[in-house]
Design a protein around this nucleic acid. Sequence first.
DNA 1: ACTAATTGTTTTAAGCTTAAAACATTGTCT
DNA 2: AGACAATGTTTTAAGCTTAAAACAATTAGT
Lengths: 172, 172
Amino acid sequence: MVEGGHFERKDYESGVQTQDGMELRVWLRLLTCTNLLDTEVRTRLKQTADTTLPRFDILAQLERHVGPMSMGELSKRLMVSNGNVTGLIDRLAGEGLVDRKPSPNDRRVQMVSLTKKGAKSFSNIAENHRTWVGDMMADLSPDEMNGLYELLARLKASILAAEDKNSLEAAE
Amino acid sequence: MVEGGHFERKDYESGVQTQDGMELRVWLRLLTCTNLLDTEVRTRLKQTADTTLPRFDILAQLERHVGPMSMGELSKRLMVSNGNVTGLIDRLAGEGLVDRKPSPNDRRVQMVSLTKKGAKSFSNIAENHRTWVGDMMADLSPDEMNGLYELLARLKASILAAEDKNSLEAAE
DNA sequence: ACTAATTGTTTTAAGCTTAAAACATTGTCT
DNA sequence: AGACAATGTTTTAAGCTTAAAACAATTAGT
């Protein structure tokens, strides 16, 4: 999109002013890293397997679950809306990667499972996925990886604490 | 969505197996943190200002630029497609937050600028935005913030190096 | 000046996403 | 059993996003 090689993707940092606080700078750098990785993964999924990340996420959930899974459970595990799952499963079923059939116990429920084709497709893609992510982080030392891992845990805890505090205030 | 308070949002970590490599674990934790922050910001933008993050990003770009900006320049700075900007500006113009008029020099070009209403709206939202992000990171010490900032810089460099290497291979 | 290529924008088609409404089925209560 | 609440899924309406095609206007080359 832009010439030069290093700014084809979202890079929110380019707009940060020096007077911005450290929090905004960390947030924008976090966003930049996530977008770079995310975009790269999506691009390679498209190029090498002609699929998308949401489809891949569904196959991954089905693969690690023993036996078929209901639409609702898929929706909970992926943390997306029910309607979203309906659409994705429609397309995956159309491509023959998953199988959807009504539950014999409860006629409201649709049970979904991987087809053989779906399982095979997933295992190929998952292998690639692991390699891609590894390559992108190849320049970080084990110490750096551990440090990042721990700091992200601290950040996650801080965010959740802030949300809890906020929801308590809202409940008053 | 799920009871318990800590897993209402995307949390890819819940599915990671112990045999997964460190790279995948870091990636999923990165994704979790970004999604938590991103979702929170979007939710609050919706609740407090009835707007969205893409709209906010456009107002921010227009605010820091002196004078009107073309559609193409906006598209480059936000790192999104031209068509995307067209749609967003359509809606922002409909809400009276931005002004769009043809350039006098080049009749292909549309020049966009903030209206008074848009500038006022942006400054209110930006103030809140800074506070939200600060609150979410409140539990991290200055040292931790600096450490995270530096490690993310290392990660960004590693990703870009991997992309460059990959595109060089593709060009052979 | 005519033709070509280039540049700037919009339109189109497809997919992802959500919230809210609509439907279908099951469970509960009397 | 009948009414009503709760649960599981799909549909609908709206917005974000992209790639590719279509349009419009400018620039370059002859």
